[in-house]
Amino acid sequence: MSYEEWFEQHAQKHLKIVEKLVAKGFTQEQIIDYFTYENMAKEEIDFCPLYKEGKKCHNMQELNCYLCGCPNFRFDDNGLGIYNGMKILSRCDIHNGSTIGYGGAVHQDCSKCTVPHHKAYINKNFNLDWKKMMKGCKIPS
């Protein structure tokens, strides 16, 4: 699956959950709390494939999934440049984490970065519309 496909599919999943919570009258704080890993793995098992395996994407005690995908992540399925003869498909705008070569391309490895999964960061960047929070992610070709 391309980054673009994942981005669009994830935006729809996120929107569906947020619309349900807004219809129930949830406040911003309640919405963010709903997206805790423990609750999401129980209530929204199809939101993330790792939920079914009982795994977290990041090794942290209080993982919040509201900003699954990160506002600092940048991608272009057509490439952001070349490194060692491989097309760079993604990078981090705050230069956190590392990169990995996979499938003949260079990808950002966010596995050791927890920045977008803390409640304080989510509150600072909060919007009901996930795509608005993530507007800088897609780099136009």
Results as ranks from 00 to 15, higher is better:
Phe75Pro: 03
Tyr37Cys: 01
Lys16Ser: 13
Gly25Phe: 06
Phe126Met: 02
Asp93Arg: 07
Gln30Asp: 11
Phe7Ile: 06
Gly79Ile: 05
Asp46Pro: 01
Gly85His: 07
Gln28Tyr: 07
Gly97Cys: 06
Val115Ser: 06
His10Asp: 11
Tyr37Ala: 04
Ile122Thr: 01
Glu8Cys: 02
Met86Lys: 15
Glu4Ile: 01
Glu5Asp: 13
Met86Gly: 00
Leu128Val: 10
Leu80Trp: 00
Tyr51Met: 02
Lys52Ala: 15
His95Met: 06
Ile17Leu: 02
Tyr83Asn: 12
Glu5Met: 05
Ile45Lys: 13
Val106Glu: 09
Cys68Asp: 08
Met86Ile: 00
Asp33Gly: 10
Ile94Asn: 10
Lys16Asp: 06
Cys68Gly: 06
Met134His: 11
Thr99Phe: 10
Ala41Asp: 00
Asn125Glu: 09
Lys135Leu: 13
Glu53Asn: 07
Tyr83Gln: 14
Ala41Asn: 02
Gln30Ala: 13
Cys92Asn: 08
Cys137Lys: 04
His107Phe: 11
Ile31Pro: 02
Ala105Arg: 09
Lys119Met: 08
Phe35Gln: 03
Thr36Cys: 13
Gly97Phe: 09
His107Tyr: 10
Val115Trp: 10
Gly104Lys: 08
Phe35Ala: 01
Gln12Lys: 15
Asn59Met: 09
Cys48Phe: 03
Ile45His: 01
Ala120Tyr: 03
Ile94Cys: 05
Ser141Thr: 14
Glu53Thr: 08
Lys131Pro: 02
His58Ser: 01
Val22Arg: 08
Ala11Met: 08
His95Gln: 07
Cys57Pro: 05
Lys124Tyr: 11
Asp76Phe: 07
Leu128Tyr: 15
Ile31Gly: 05
Cys113Tyr: 12
Asn78Pro: 00
Cys57Phe: 05
Lys138Met: 14
Gly54Met: 06
Lys132Glu: 14
Lys16Arg: 14
Lys119Trp: 02
Ser2Glu: 09
Met134Tyr: 11
Asn125Ala: 05
Leu63Trp: 03
Ile88Gln: 06
Tyr3Cys: 04
Lys119Gln: 11
His118Asn: 10
Phe35His: 07
Lys52Asp: 06
Cys68Thr: 10
Asn125Trp: 09
Trp130Gln: 08
Ile100Gly: 03
Phe126Leu: 06
Cys68Glu: 07
Gln12Leu: 15
Asn123Cys: 13
Lys119Ala: 10
Asp129Ser: 12
Tyr34His: 14
Lys20Gly: 05
Phe75Met: 05
Ser111Tyr: 02
Val115Lys: 14
Gly85Trp: 08
Asp109Cys: 04
Thr99Ala: 12
Glu38Arg: 12
Phe35Leu: 03
Ile45Glu: 09
Met86Glu: 11
Met40Ser: 15
Ile31His: 03
Thr27Ile: 09
Asn127Phe: 01
Val18Gly: 07
Asp76Gly: 11
Ser90Ile: 05
Asp77Cys: 03
Asn59His: 12
Ile82Trp: 13
Glu44Ile: 01
Asp77Ser: 06
Lys112Leu: 08
Thr114Ser: 15
Met60Trp: 04
Phe47Ala: 04
Pro49Trp: 01
His58Trp: 04
His10Pro: 02
Asp33Ile: 00
Cys48Ala: 02
His95Asn: 12
Asp46Cys: 07
Ile122Ser: 02
Phe126Ile: 06
Lys52Leu: 14
Asn84Asp: 15
Glu5Gly: 00
Glu53Lys: 12
Arg74Gly: 02
His117Arg: 05
Lys135Phe: 09
Thr27Phe: 03
Lys119His: 06
Lys55Arg: 12
